[in-house]
Computed example of a mutant assay.
Amino acid sequence: MSGLDSALAAGRRAAEARMRDTVRLYSQGPDVFDRSTGQTVPGPKSTVYEGKARVTSVAQASGEDTQAGDREVRLLEYLVSVPWGTSLPSGTRVLPGMRVEVVDSPDARMAGLILWVTGAQFGDQATAWRISTEDRS
């Protein structure tokens, strides 16, 4: 094992040790209108990853105000780091529009937070796999 490989392995162990949150990464099908009840039902969820992660707000992001239907919302950016060696089901890619739900966190205020994926960063010299997200609430 080269010096670089040893340093990366140590960095990945350290990054994973800081992953104290549990998240669920999923895609969701389109909403469906139920004519019998007159209600819109959320589309089916397809989970592609559930496990440990580190969810952090992006400090330099000031947030962006935008219109969503009849109300104004503030888009806040978060970075979700999962273990570098995480594998997804065959043929699955992380795409914008997928969602990350914080299932559990030492910070109880984070539990239940739904984040929308905006992108993912890959790299053979990274210590974690990072997914860019935003809170659209």
Rank of each mutant, 00 (worst) to 15 (best):
106 P>F: 04
133 T>K: 00
54 R>S: 14
116 W>L: 14
85 G>I: 05
99 R>C: 10
99 R>E: 09
35 R>F: 06
79 L>Q: 14
103 V>H: 08
86 T>Y: 15
41 V>E: 01
112 G>W: 03
102 V>D: 00
52 K>D: 06
74 R>S: 06
123 G>I: 01
66 T>I: 12
128 A>S: 15
49 Y>R: 01
100 V>S: 00
49 Y>V: 00
57 S>V: 10
51 G>S: 09
108 A>N: 06
66 T>F: 15
44 P>T: 03
100 V>T: 00
71 R>S: 11
118 T>K: 13
64 E>H: 04
119 G>T: 03
118 T>N: 08
104 D>N: 12
83 P>Y: 10
92 T>Q: 15
50 E>T: 03
105 S>E: 07
87 S>C: 05
126 A>M: 14
136 R>N: 04
132 S>V: 08
118 T>F: 04
76 L>H: 10
112 G>N: 11
59 A>N: 05
85 G>L: 13
57 S>M: 12
55 V>G: 08
79 L>I: 10
65 D>R: 09
118 T>D: 10
66 T>A: 14
125 Q>N: 09
115 L>Y: 05
58 V>Y: 02
78 Y>L: 02
91 G>D: 05
81 S>F: 07
75 L>V: 09
135 D>Q: 14
100 V>A: 00
101 E>A: 05
116 W>N: 12
59 A>M: 04
104 D>Q: 13
122 F>C: 06
88 L>R: 04
64 E>N: 06
76 L>G: 06
130 R>C: 04
55 V>T: 07
93 R>Q: 12
84 W>V: 09
137 S>D: 12
42 P>K: 02
85 G>A: 14
116 W>D: 10
52 K>S: 12
44 P>F: 03
91 G>N: 07
122 F>H: 08
111 A>Q: 15
77 E>Q: 13
53 A>V: 05
61 A>F: 09
54 R>W: 05
49 Y>P: 00
74 R>L: 11
59 A>D: 10
75 L>D: 04
49 Y>H: 01
119 G>M: 03
92 T>Y: 11
95 L>W: 02
52 K>L: 06
42 P>F: 00
122 F>W: 10
53 A>L: 10
121 Q>Y: 05
99 R>K: 14
37 T>I: 00
51 G>A: 08
42 P>M: 01
58 V>F: 00
108 A>V: 08
117 V>T: 04
121 Q>H: 06
46 S>I: 02
84 W>A: 14
91 G>R: 11
64 E>Q: 11
113 L>H: 13
110 M>P: 08
46 S>Q: 11
111 A>W: 02
34 D>H: 06
130 R>D: 06
73 V>W: 07
133 T>L: 01
89 P>L: 10
128 A>M: 07
80 V>L: 15
35 R>N: 10
80 V>T: 12
40 T>M: 11
56 T>Q: 11
109 R>T: 09
82 V>L: 15
90 S>I: 03
51 G>Q: 08
35 R>D: 13
76 L>V: 15
120 A>P: 03
115 L>T: 05
125 Q>I: 11
123 G>Y: 00
86 T>L: 15
107 D>F: 01
97 G>H: 00
68 A>N: 08
77 E>S: 12
127 T>H: 09
101 E>M: 03
134 E>I: 14
59 A>Y: 05
80 V>D: 12
124 D>E: 15
82 V>F: 12
37 T>Q: 13
134 E>A: 12
